[in-house]
Write a protein that binds this DNA or RNA. Structure first.
Lengths: 128, 128
DNA sequence: CCTTGACCTTCCAGTTGCTGGAAGGACCAT
DNA sequence: ATGGTCCTTCCAGCAACTGGAAGGTCAAGG
């Protein structure tokens, strides 16, 4: 299979597959006589795994860890769960940060007429 | 005032001030005979404004828009409010995205023993 | 046989918002 | 004179791609 086929079947763009190879997330693909990268079914599976993990917001580094755990038949599920747990904590942190900002913005917007007049508590607050 | 002093007084690191200048968020500072950038009280105010806007998550581009509105005495507060509104919508989008991911992760974690055994629904799901 | 178009290759640059570091000049106190 | 702290510029790197240029390959159609 060439990279385009794998891209279509895994949902990971060809460019991104090359990128993953360049940063060591996947090992370098075999090459045909023409220099084209050649892939197997297993590679498609791996890329799908990566795709799903990335869409859950895991960093490329963490996806690397997940891949290692996946391939390690002697892994402890506790290690996987702990990784997920850390990720959830990080998500909570981000959500809290965003909500705090949102609260502030809504408060400011509440005090702003939002019409043609120039006076605006939002700008006033930013100005201090 | 030299850049270090302004940095301290505005809370914006010297490096970041130079960066803001390089991307056109603030206009190039006057230079002294020694080539050092020279700043006024007004510049400190501006940098504080920028600092607050950035800490509310506005992009540098949007901070540029906010600065322009701030300096425009004929502005309509509606424009400021609309900009804030767009930002809130974007925040909502991000929060929703994060919460959706979190829900998925918690569900997966719920099904995972998290002990020394290797079988792990988290990995199974990622593998498809 | 030739051309066209869709592949593939590599490498460089841009995105966002800084941040670190190197190399060199300036200033101030002792 | 010397040390320490400022300032200058430019280059590189972070995350995770994405776009584009320049060029090689391949398969189908006229």
């Amino acid at each position: 299979m060439n990279i385009g086929t794998v891209a279509k079947r895994s949902g990971v763009p060809a460019k991104t597959i090359r990128y993953y190879e360049s940063v060591g997330l996947i090992r370098p693909a075999e090459r045909g006589d023409n220099g084209y990268r050649t892939y197997s079914e297993t590679d498609v599976e791996t890329l799908r795994f990566i795709q799903r993990a990335r869409s859950l917001g895991f960093s490329v580094a963490d996806v690397g860890n997940l891949l290692a755990l996946w391939h390690d038949r002697g892994r402890a599920s506790a290690d996987v769960k702990a990784l997920a747990q850390r990720h959830v904590i990080e998500i909570d942190r981000k959500v809290e940060e965003l909500l705090a900002i949102k609260r502030t913005l809504l408060m400011l917007m509440n005090h702003c007429h939002g019409d043609q007049r120039p006076d605006c508590p939002i700008l006033d607050t930013l100005a201090g």
